[in-house]
Computed example of a mutant assay.
Amino acid sequence: MATKKIKSAGAAEPLPKNAVRNCSDRPMPGGNPYKPAVATVTEVIHETTAIKTLRVVLDDPAVMASFHYEPGQVGQLSVFGVGESTFVINSPPSQKEYLQFSVMQAGEVTAAIHRLATGDKVGVRAPLGNFFPWRDWRGKNIFFVGGGIGIAPLRVIMLHLLERKADYGKISLLYGARSPRDMAYSCEIEGWLHNPDLDCTLCIDAPFEGWTHKVGLIPNVLLKLAPDSTNCVAVLCGPPVMIKFTLQALEKLGFTPENIVTTLEKRMKCGIGICGRCNIGGRYICVDGPVFTLNQLQALPQEL
């Protein structure tokens, strides 16, 4: 399952049933796109009561060594005999020792993933989808807004940019959850708070004993922080209701649709634009996404 690159921009028109959409330049799986590579779970991290992070290593050393992906791309993680679901690869591409997926339990497949232990076998079909256009952001300020498990896609692109901090302006993160117990990557957050290259703000919905950071819903905290929209890209991921009101807050702050980026990861099945399960109009979330600007989303039919 060595990765390859496919070039040329995808069109929005519907495709013949057996056709695969041409993709913008991004890594894609080689070989049979339906056949998962077998991987071994090397570590399971309990993030919260509902979220676990799995680190997996592809069993074929040559495939693991040649595996390449861009920040924001996703993979289909499968439990054999149960099914597969789509998750962002949230380890930065510079991490070559394993692939990391963070999973919130929400159904049969995710429950099976949560039962996995070190040494268990899983299937991986990856990388799939497009990615954050980080090269286009050079010279700009970046403001990340994450809610709950939505921090997973932000983690990979944030770490990727911090590795290249000289190419960017100010990098900021606003991360919120219902309570401190619902925050993923708790073992990393302290490092984020003290990273001189990252302006990190944390918030929770309601007061909590011992909490010393912001209290309030993410859109309200964002409005109080009032980041300057000049030469700035806002990148947000989180629950739909959080995204809805955060988009409104960003627009109030002067962010234009082309400078607001988010992800859609629902309804994916085949991952290669054939089954049609994730289509919205003539677009396919698994191929044309999961990363979209607000400008692109506004051009889609209102089916979200």
Rank of each mutant, 00 (worst) to 15 (best):
L304T: 05
L297C: 11
L128D: 01
D182V: 05
K121N: 07
V235C: 00
P29V: 02
I151W: 06
I218E: 07
T263Q: 00
R164D: 00
P127S: 03
V56P: 00
W211D: 11
G216L: 13
I142L: 15
P196E: 06
E163D: 12
C200T: 14
G75T: 11
V124M: 09
M158K: 04
A2L: 15
P196S: 07
A19K: 11
D60E: 11
E97V: 01
I6F: 13
L236S: 01
I171S: 08
H194I: 11
I280K: 11
L162N: 08
Q298V: 06
K121R: 15
D59P: 01
K224W: 10
S78Q: 13
Q100T: 05
P92Q: 05
E303V: 12
G119I: 02
F144S: 14
I274N: 02
A152V: 10
C232M: 14
G119T: 05
E163Y: 05
L304R: 07
E97Q: 13
C278N: 09
G119D: 05
T86E: 14
V233S: 02
K266D: 13
Q248I: 10
G81V: 09
N90Y: 01
P29I: 06
G271P: 00
H213V: 10
D197H: 10
A177T: 06
K244H: 15
T262D: 03
Y69I: 08
T49A: 14
A177R: 14
Q296F: 09
L99W: 04
Y168Q: 08
M104D: 04
F67P: 05
G150E: 00
A11T: 12
P92W: 06
R267S: 12
A112Q: 02
V20M: 13
Y69N: 05
N141P: 04
I272N: 04
D59W: 05
I218T: 10
K266P: 01
G216N: 04
C200M: 13
P92F: 04
W137T: 03
R55I: 01
F67V: 05
A62S: 15
L174A: 06
K224R: 15
E97L: 04
I189M: 15
D25Q: 13
V221P: 00
A226R: 08
D25A: 15
L222K: 13
T48K: 10
D136K: 14
P290D: 02
V79P: 08
T262A: 02
E13Q: 13
C237M: 01
F132R: 02
I204D: 04
P61H: 11
S172E: 10
P227W: 12
A37H: 07
D167L: 15
